[in-house]
C-alpha cells in the first residue's frame, strides 16, 4: 500500500496460556498514515494481540518491532516512551485524581519530567495549559476539576482518549473506543480518531465490533479468528469474504 517502512510490525507473534494458544503466529505490518481495523469474534485474541504489541503481555514466540527496532522484551513504560500509545477497552484511569490531573500526568510523562523532586507541579504552567488544550479537544474542558470517578461512563472513555492524545504517540492502539457509549457520545470519539487519521502521520490500530465504524474509518481490515490472522485486505473485500461472514458477521447479525 504505502512505500514507507512500517511503523509497527509483528512477526510470527504468539502467546500461549498453559496449553491454550491465544495468539498464534501473527505476522502483520502497519504503516504510517493508515488505520487498520482488527475484527473477529469475542475470544479471537484481538485484545491479547494488543497486549503483546504494547507490552502488557510478553510474547512466547515471535517479535514486535517499532520503527524497525525490536521491542519484544521491553516493558510497557519503555514502549510508551518510544511512541506506542494504548487506550484500553476497560476504562483505565486514575479514579480519585481530577480529570485535569489525569491528563496532566500524561503530558508530564511525555515531557519526561516525572523524576523532578523540586519543582512545584501546580506551577508548571506549560504542562497545565497543554492538558487543558487536550481536554478541550475531547470536549471535557468544563469537567477539569472533577475527580475522574465522578464522570459518566462516556466521559470516562473520552478522558481515556485524552490521556492517549496527551502522550502524542506515533502509533495509536484503540481497543473498542466506543464500547458502552451512548449514540450522542460515540461520534465525538470517532471524530477524534478521524482527526488523528487526517493528519496522516500516525499509525492507527483499532479493535472494533461495529461494522459501520469499520467501514467509515478503516483503510484496511484484518480478521483474527482463534488467535490466527485469517483475512487481510480492503474493508469491502474482507467484509464480503465467506470466512468473515461465518466467523464474525453471523454472530453480529444475531446480536441485532
Amino acid at each position: 500500500m504505502t512505500p514507507a517502512p512500517p511503523a509497527l510490525e509483528s512477526e510470527g507473534l504468539g502467546i500461549r496460556f498453559g496449553g491454550q494458544v491465544a495468539v498464534d503466529d501473527v505476522s502483520c505490518a502497519f504503516h504510517p498514515g493508515t488505520l487498520t481495523a482488527i475484527v473477529g469474534p469475542n475470544g479471537a485474541g484481538k485484545t491479547t494481540y494488543f497486549n503483546l504489541l504494547s507490552g502488557q503481555l510478553r510474547a512466547s514466540a515471535g517479535e514486535v518491532r517499532l520503527d524497525g527496532v525490536t521491542i519484544t522484551r521491553l516493558p510497557p513504560s519503555r514502549r510508551s516512551r518510544l511512541g506506542l500509545g494504548r487506550a484500553f477497552q476497560l476504562t483505565n484511569l486514575f479514579p480519585t485524581l481530577t480529570v485535569l490531573e489525569n491528563v496532566r500526568l500524561a503530558v508530564q510523562a511525555r515531557a519526561g519530567i516525572g523524576l523532578d523532586v523540586f519543582s512545584r507541579a501546580a506551577r508548571l504552567r506549560a504542562l497545565i495549559e497543554r492538558a487543558h488544550a487536550v481536554l478541550a479537544q475531547v470536549r471535557l474542558q468544563t469537567r477539569a476539576a472533577v475527580p475522574a470517578v465522578a464522570l459518566s461512563h462516556g466521559d470516562q472513555r473520552k478522558l481515556d482518549i485524552a490521556i492517549l492524545l496527551a502522550l502524542e504517540p506515533s502509533v495509536f492502539l484503540f481497543d473498542e473506543p466506543t464500547a458502552g457509549m451512548s449514540v450522542d457520545e460515540a461520534p465525538v470519539v470517532l471524530d477524534l480518531i478521524e482527526q488523528i487519521k487526517a493528519a496522516r502521520r500516525a499509525t492507527i490500530l483499532l479493535v472494533e465490533h461495529k461494522m459501520d465504524v469499520v467501514r467509515r474509518l478503516a483503510d484496511r481490515v484484518i480478521v483474527l479468528h482463534q488467535g490466527r490472522l485469517v483475512a487481510d485486505g480492503a474493508p469491502e473485500d474482507v467484509v464480503a469474504s465467506a470466512l468473515v461472514q461465518e466467523a464474525y458477521l453471523g454472530r453480529q447479525a444475531g446480536r441485532g
Binding site: 510497557p76 484500553f88 490531573e101 500526568l105 516525572g114 523532578d116
Partner: peptide
C-alpha cells in the same frame, strides 16, 4: 512536585501509570 504526582498515579492505577 511532579514526582509526587506520579506516586499518586501509581497508587491509583499502577497498570496505567506504567502504560503512560
Amino acid at each position: 512536585a511532579p514526582f509526587g504526582r506520579v506516586l499518586q498515579a501509581i497508587r491509583e492505577n499502577e497498570f496505567r501509570a506504567e502504560a503512560l
